[in-house]
């Protein structure tokens, strides 16, 4: 166990979002143990949201110290947007420094999903910037695909090995990273998908009825339909308020998801950080977009010379 009196906080402090690449249990523990133990010894709240295996390892090696650690409940990482809010709220509920060992569950994600979790990792740095939270993010080099490990090097401003920390020269600003994520074009909606054109606020109620009908047909649970309708309404109201006033809603389903896309041919939404950051940490008036990201399972927002597109996704799995 490391000396709890040793300076535990690395310099510079503002970038307290660290990457830990580990290839075996010993490498994981060599960093996770001093991180956790030094935090507890300094009286800081410590929160652990990692894999079942790593939780067991850490509990075992911490011994009685583990009693003071808060371990994440099941399903902590439901969507990237909700995980970001949950970590943000924890950090803001704590006055003074706190520590989080947070390991994103990458296994089984599609490439779309992995891209959004990468983006979340990048944005976490901004969401935590004004708090005293120090995040250490372990990545398992044995099991994770190369593209996930590569992105991790771009999204964390600081690198941790054992108890040593150093600035990450490969780090990319969250603004740039998020914009790069959006350079991947969205797949075209399928031919023959449901379509509803609206022109002005008086059509939005009919648009909601259209979306509700298709969502029910896709057997989306009632509470998820309620959430979808709030998202659809907000996206359409956005087009009416800030865009050209007219737009088109397309809806289709896959085995796993219901897609609902609102496009506004005159939209000029700046999408780089749109709706990704909690309203209190963002200087943008992005509450409506924030609610879309929080209430949906995923939302892609793009602005091109064809206008603005907001593609809302709801999982059909419960």
């Amino acid at each position: 166990m490391s000396d709890p009196r040793a300076p535990s906080r690395p310099e510079p402090a503002p970038h307290a979002h660290h990457l830990l690449l580990y290839g075996d249990d010993e490498q994981f523990l060599a960093a996770a143990l001093p991180f956790t133990h030094d935090g507890l010894a300094a009286g800081e709240p410590v929160f652990v949201a990692t894999t079942r295996h790593n939780t067991a390892l850490l509990r075992h090696r911490l011994g009685s110290w583990a009693e003071d650690v808060a371990f994440a409940p099941a399903h902590w990482y439901r969507t990237p947007a909700q995980a970001l809010l949950a970590f943000h709220d924890r950090a803001h509920a704590t006055s003074g420094p706190s520590r989080v060992l947070g390991e994103t569950p990458w296994i089984g994600l599609t490439s779309d999903q992995a891209r959004e979790w990468n983006r979340y990792e990048s944005l976490l740095t901004l969401a935590l910037a004004s708090t005293g939270a120090w995040h250490l993010c372990p990545y398992d080099t044995r099991t994770l695909p190369a593209h996930v490990l590569h992105a991790a090097q771009l999204t964390h401003p600081t690198l941790t090995t054992g108890a040593a920390h150093r600035l990450n020269p490969a780090h990319v600003t969250p603004e740039r990273f998020s914009a790069a994520c959006d350079s991947v074009p969205l797949p075209e909606p399928p031919v023959g998908c449901g379509e509803f054109r609206f022109d002005g606020p008086q059509h939005i109620a009919d648009l909601r009825a259209f979306a509700a009908r298709l969502a029910r047909r896709a057997a989306l649970p009632a509470d998820r339909i309620d959430s979808l309708l709030i998202c659809v309404d907000e996206a359409a109201a956005n087009a009416v308020r800030h865009g050209g006033g007219a737009g088109c809603c397309r809806m289709w389903t896959t085995v796993a998801e219901v897609f609902c896309e609102i496009s506004d041919p005159k939209g000029t939404l700046d999408t780089a950080l749109a709706g990704y950051l909690p309203p209190d940490t963002s200087h943008l008036d992005g509450r409506g977009l924030w609610i879309i990201r929080q209430l949906s399972d995923a939302a892609d927002m793009r602005t091109t010379h064809h206008g603005t597109t907001i593609r809302i996704r709801m999982s059909r799995r419960r």
Binding site: L85, D89, D223, D226, S227, I230, P278, P279, D280, R287, W290, I291, Q294, L295
Partner: peptide, 12 residues
């Protein structure tokens, strides 16, 4: 509906 609670929670 649970939607109101969900929006309240999302905005703190």
């Amino acid at each position: 509906t649970g939607a109101v609670a969900e929006m309240l929670r999302a905005c703190g």
